[in-house]
Amino acid sequence: MNNDKILRLIPNFRFTDEYERQQLLHDYARFSPWIFYGGLIISASDFFITSYLNRLPILGTLTFILILIYSIILIASLRKKKVDTLEVYTEAQYKMQLKNYIKVAYYSQL
C-alpha cells in the first residue's frame, strides 16, 4: 500500500491480519462520506452559532476552510484521474456500464 503513513492513523491497523485490514478499510471507505459531510455540517453550525453569540469563531472558521480546501483538492484529483467520466462507444456498452455502476453502488451500501 502506498499511503502507509495515513493507514497508521487507523487504530489497530498495524496489529491486524490481512482480512481484518480489508474489513477496516471497507468500513472506513463506506463511512467516510458520512464523516466528511457530518464534519462539514458540524463545523458550519459551530461557525453560525458562535457568530450568533457575538464571539469570534476562529477554530470553527479554520476547520470549515480546511474542509472546503480538502474537498476542492479531492474533486480536482478525481477529475484529473477522470473518475467521473464514462467512455463508451455504443449504446449497449453504455447500458452495461450503467448496470455495473448501479450494482456497485447497491453493494457498497450494504
Rank of each mutant, 00 (worst) to 15 (best):
Q97R: 15
N100F: 13
Y52F: 15
I75P: 02
D46G: 15
G60Y: 01
Y94V: 00
A92P: 07
T90L: 01
W34F: 12
I102D: 08
L7H: 00
F47Q: 00
A29W: 02
Q23N: 11
L53E: 13
I58R: 07
G60P: 09
L62S: 12
L56N: 13
Y37C: 05
S108E: 08
P33V: 01
L40M: 14
A105Q: 04
I35R: 03
G38E: 01
D46L: 15
Y106K: 12
N54W: 14
I73T: 00
L9P: 00
L98T: 15
T50G: 00
I58Q: 04
L66N: 11
Q93I: 02
F48Y: 11
S77Q: 14
Y37G: 05
K82F: 07
R30G: 05
L66R: 07
H26D: 13
P57V: 02
A92Q: 15
N54I: 00
L59P: 07
L66S: 15
R21V: 04
I49A: 07
I58H: 08
L98Y: 11
D17G: 11
Y94P: 05
A44E: 12
F64Q: 11
V88C: 02
E20R: 01
E20L: 04
S108L: 14
E18I: 02
R21H: 02
L40Q: 10
I75M: 13
K99D: 03
A76I: 01
Q109N: 08
Y28P: 08
M1F: 01
R14L: 12
V83W: 06
Q22H: 09
R14T: 14
Y19L: 04
P33Y: 05
I67P: 10
I41D: 08
H26R: 11
Y107P: 02
E87H: 14
R8I: 05
Y107C: 01
Q22A: 05
D84A: 01
L24V: 01
Y28E: 03
A105L: 14
Y107D: 06
L62T: 02
S71T: 04
I72V: 12
N12T: 00
T61G: 13
F48E: 11
D4I: 15
F64M: 12
F15P: 10
Y37P: 10
F15S: 14
Y70S: 06
Y37E: 11
I73M: 13
Q22E: 05
L59I: 15
V88T: 02
Q109T: 09
F31Q: 06
T16F: 10
L59T: 14
T90E: 06
Y94Q: 14
Y70C: 02
S108W: 06
D17N: 13
I41R: 08
